[in-house]
Design a protein around this nucleic acid. Structure first.
Lengths: 385, 385
DNA sequence: TTGTAAGCGTTATCAT
DNA sequence: ATGATAACGCTTACAA
């Protein structure tokens, strides 16, 4: 079966200086060791059918013996792939992000692909530079989380033919796979719930402008205000930037106004936690004086001392879906029309929500009362598209 | 200056099927376009001195025009590098981790290297598989956070000659660069501080066994108990696993014992937060009945509703140092003896610590009273090696 | 100052 | 079933 010659050293060794780590074995070494050609080794290792069972076994055994592993770089050059996917995030330290990353990692790992983490700090140049770097690396695909690539970057990615999945933020003008959440439904659930508790004046801490999700959440708030005929005042909507601090200051602003809300909805949990902190400092009791509802359901939101009522954003599932979509594209269906996955939010009732302080039980309402009667269980199921 | 021939298409084009993305330009295309050899293009792009200024300009201009970028894969194969470094973490969703990652990313980015994120979930096989994958990819270096590689993995990394920096956990038996924190000093600061407040019975929620940092923190606690002559009882030390839940249940166990502590020190913030939750549920007031001190100072610890007194772990600086050490190794000094960076913890006094409830002010103590008199400012400076 | 050619470690094509 | 060979896109002696 195996030839007589056993050249021992063909590609490596020989001139080994004896110092430093011995160069790792190449496919030529393994081929020589097995007495077959490199092509056969390659075929055997790849599990191709055109190789005798005996030969395959020999190759596999010897490969294990000498600890042969093919160079990703060489294969990559030859095959035009890299078995790694780029993950572009704004800030990995934002508690929302790692959960999504976990979801991505989990499915990507199943195909033994690697994740290249790109933290842009939301800086345009860093984003661009990272995208270039990823393209130079011949990544198999790319996921962009809660950000948009500018047109030029987008074109480069498209030109390179690299599959791209955007998450939480649609790229305006470009069509590609997308994973998001039904923001409007989420805010609507929060609002309906608060109305059902009897609230008539609800404040809203919105996120950054120029982001589709922020717009959607604000729009849903405004719609709910209109639909339920709630009090509306300019001071009831304050701009934040998704940080705790901005939630804190937004709340102080809101509570300093003439028309104090009896409930506050924040566009994310971090700002809701900021609101909680501000109200605490101001000596305003939560939930008896003011209710607070967040959005995202980050891990610490369920801590007994925070106990934040919030809208759950299926974070891990988000990452999971994005990765799945991406892998499908990579696997082949480049030409298919873009797909979207819109996940469902759900209401998580905890301790920061209650009826407003002076709720006049007998006082009749014009509208929205049927909604207000909905049970908690029902609301948990309700999620429009 | 430029030759007469302008072959237009040398390596690419020609047989372009007109469909799909046009193959990206290679160095041959660029060379042909400039009328020079690929070697000259390479030299010009690399900024080598042996190329005429005019030629260099031409090459750079044309390169920009056609958007030429060298293939990382090809260069990697040729040069034996990949410009990416592997970052092995246990669980990216642990709030401690992303801050360290940020530190790493920041300095790695400066050299335009990429970060390959490997989330092991603390599973041995996943860890091993990731290490293999990284080695196959010819990574320039590797950082392992709060974990140890088993001997075999360690040997493989060493055999491959890949620089490795371990963080927070020393690899027993192997010597390599290390970044950590002075765990003993940290716990000592917490204990000294509590004693200074008058506490005599302090419980400790320790981390997982088989981890040098957990051992160090426990050892420091026991030493402090001995040094200050504090009450000691088996029930005052309970095992946790660094999770919120384990902090919760450890606290319940501890408070159910006969000898209730007046203060609890937890080996990390997550467990401290669990303690806070449990005490809250049990109706035990913090800090008037029981004080709680954590370790790490995670971001949310400073929230007004948590307001956790804790020992600060310079997380970002940890990542920063690890990356710096690694880049130095990569840059050349492979042979130098291993370096260690031990960062200093510091005490962050917030709202979960106070004198014990029944502190008899006039009651004289045998020892430790001078320490107890230290001011807060002094303690913040104190950090032994 | 520039060009030629070898080689990095694979896989794919085509003979055999 | 297996082997020779070209090719992937680049860098680097070495030659001119």
């Amino acid at each position: 079966m195996s030839r007589n010659r056993l050249p021992q050293e063909e590609a490596n060794g020989g001139t080994d200086a004896g110092q430093g780590s011995p160069a790792r074995p190449t496919i030529l070494d393994l081929a020589a060791l097995c007495g077959v050609s490199p092509a056969t080794v390659s075929n055997a290792l790849a599990g191709k059918p055109n190789v005798k069972a005996q030969t395959r076994e020999l190759v596999l055994r010897k490969a294990r013996e000498i600890g042969y592993h093919a160079s990703s770089t060489a294969r990559g050059l030859r095959m035009g792939r890299s078995w790694s996917i780029g993950l572009v995030v704004g800030d990995i330290a934002n508690p929302f992000v790692p959960d999504v990353v976990r979801g991505v990692e989990d499915v990507v790992w199943r195909e033994r692909k690697n994740l290249i983490l790109c933290n842009t700090d939301f800086q345009a140049e860093k984003k661009t530079a990272y995208v270039r770097s990823l393209l130079d690396k011949q990544i198999d695909g790319m996921i962009v989380l809660s950000q948009i690539l500018d047109d030029q970057d987008m074109e480069r990615v498209e030109a390179a033919g690299i599959p791209l999945v955007t998450v939480n933020r649609r790229a305006p003008g470009h069509s590609c796979d997308y994973v998001g959440i039904d923001n409007q439904a989420g805010v609507r659930m929060a609002m309906d719930y608060l109305v059902s508790l009897g609230h008539r004046r609800v404040g809203f801490i919105k996120g950054l402008f120029r982001s589709s999700s922020a717009d959607d959440r604000l729009a849903a708030y405004l719609e709910a205000v209109a639909a339920h005929g709630l009090d509306s005042a300019p001071s009831l909507v304050v701009q934040g930037d998704y940080s705790i601090e901005s939630g804190d200051s937004a709340t102080r602003t809101m509570m300093a106004a003439a028309q104090r809300p009896t409930a506050i909805v924040a566009a994310n949990d971090l700002m809701a936690l900021g609101a909680l902190g501000a109200l605490h400092d101001l000596g305003i009791k939560v939930p008896s004086d003011v209710s607070v509802v967040g959005f995202d359901n980050i891990q610490l939101a369920e801590h007994p001392l925070l106990n934040l009522t919030t809208i759950n954003h299926p974070k891990r599932e988000t990452g999971d879906s994005a990765a799945r979509l991406l892998l499908q594209r990579i696997a082949g269906d480049r030409g298919d029309p873009p797909r979207s996955v819109i996940l469902k939010p759900s209401l998580i009732v905890r301790g920061t929500s209650a009826p407003p302080p002076a709720v006049a039980v007998a006082k009749p309402r014009r509208r929205g009362s049927s909604q207000a009667e909905k049970t908690q269980a029902e609301k948990n199921q309700t999620a429009g598209t």
